[in-house]
Nucleic acid binder design. Structure first.
Lengths: 232, 232
DNA sequence: GAGTGGTCTAGACCACTGT
DNA sequence: CAGTGGTCTAGACCACTCC
């Protein structure tokens, strides 16, 4: 006799097993929550919790009235952790340094106004800085911060404070988007990172918001050799 | 008077607002679930659901007995969807084509044997292929498949079948790792992708396993301009 | 219209862990 | 040991959407 199925993790394990053993095949509709709860001898809420977890992982598709089906093309999902740059460097046992290159209050260009969804008249603080690992350029940071959303920033001394860390501590965000790409180092980036012109560099662009209010947009240009790694 | 707080999304919104407005500052312990439920006039389970969601996003740290505190260094997590290449192209409304370039059964080089954690004597099927979008090179696929783990592959006609899709349908995996980087196109890649030598290209390397058994390792070299995008 | 998942409630007990 | 989050239950109503 099999073990009892009581916790939502038990239900999840059972469901995953049936998918892997093809008891429920891709495209199949599985029994509804009420029936599964009866079968497993637990409450419907427990089944619901388990199925939501499996659906989050991409293996099930759920729709009201239509029911729950095994995904035909399970889209695998990788979770990337986005560390503070200081932590990223120090966790590798390297020495971290930060250098401000330039700071300026500006009116946004049209493209930036659109990307950050700014209202007319909102100004930006533009920061350029370099993060170093063991004394060598690691990543060049080109950042815009919305002064309307985070007014305290104008009083911060950016020689002493690192925007990456200051914002994490003082302006938490609820939503954001992030993009990864490859590009050729331009003149400015090549000089700052101390690499030949047109060297292939890894680029991360990130925008963050708190409750529809734009906070910041940053473009990180990594020195050659940087790899972003995770498990699936 | 403010709107009632009934749903867990309402609670989440309220909590995020208090974090943003620094009513609750990084490091602070927030009231326990029972008190919050009383304050909001909802059930404790509703508060729990909301706080779990916020904690999942990294903004809160929760521990039994210790309580819930606002994260000091929120490590944000981004979830990347890893689509089948055909879907990635067709979802953009482009026409998908696949072309096999080369296939070969080989003994692994030492570095590949290490990366795929192969036993001595295990052979690999080496495939090179190109995926095209609207007739233009989109991504060059350089793939090794472990013949010991997936013996059926030797009988597959790779002129007609696309390894990316065949493996998804026939060789589910339990674990994997994935790395993103930027590189300069070498002679082979430049010719296949039809770009100048040393063009900056986006590279994805992925290995997958099923229960400790290596299945496949693939290196995807994208044509210039490719961006990987997601929300945080 | 009817069937399904989404969520809320009130109460209960459990599991972990700081003190 | 005691306080907190983690989870289960049984029942209820709602929201969406397929037929």
């Amino acid at each position: 006799m099999q073990d009892a199925i009581n916790t939502w993790q038990d239900v999840q394990r059972e469901v995953l097993g049936r998918i892997q053993n093809r008891v429920w095949k891709p495209g199949d509709i599985i029994p509804n929550e009420v029936d599964l709860a009866k079968e497993f001898g637990c409450a419907r809420a427990t089944v619901n919790r388990a199925l939501q977890a499996v659906a989050d992982s991409g293996l099930l598709d759920r729709r009201r009235k239509a029911g729950t089906r095994v995904a035909v093309n399970p889209v695998r999902k990788a979770t990337l952790e986005i560390p503070i740059i200081r932590q990223e460097i120090e966790q590798r046992g390297q020495h971290y340094q930060y250098a401000l290159i330039e700071q300026q209050v500006t009116d946004p260009q049209a493209d930036m106004q659109a990307m950050m969804k700014l209202s007319d008249g909102q100004q930006l603080l533009h920061l350029k800085a370099l993060h170093l690992a063991d004394g060598l350029p690691h990543v060049y940071e080109d950042r815009w911060i919305n002064i309307s959303t985070v007014p305290e920033i104008v009083a911060v001394d950016w020689q002493q404070n690192n925007a990456n860390e200051w914002l994490v501590a003082h302006a938490p965000f609820s939503d954001g988007d992030i993009a990864f790409s490859a590009g050729a180092a331009g003149a400015v980036e090549a000089e700052i990172l101390n690499v030949p012109l047109n060297t292939a560099v890894f680029i991360i662009e990130r925008s963050t918001w708190m409750m529809q209010q734009s906070i910041t947009r940053v473009r990180l240009t990594y020195a050659p050799g940087h790899r972003l790694h995770t498990t699936i």
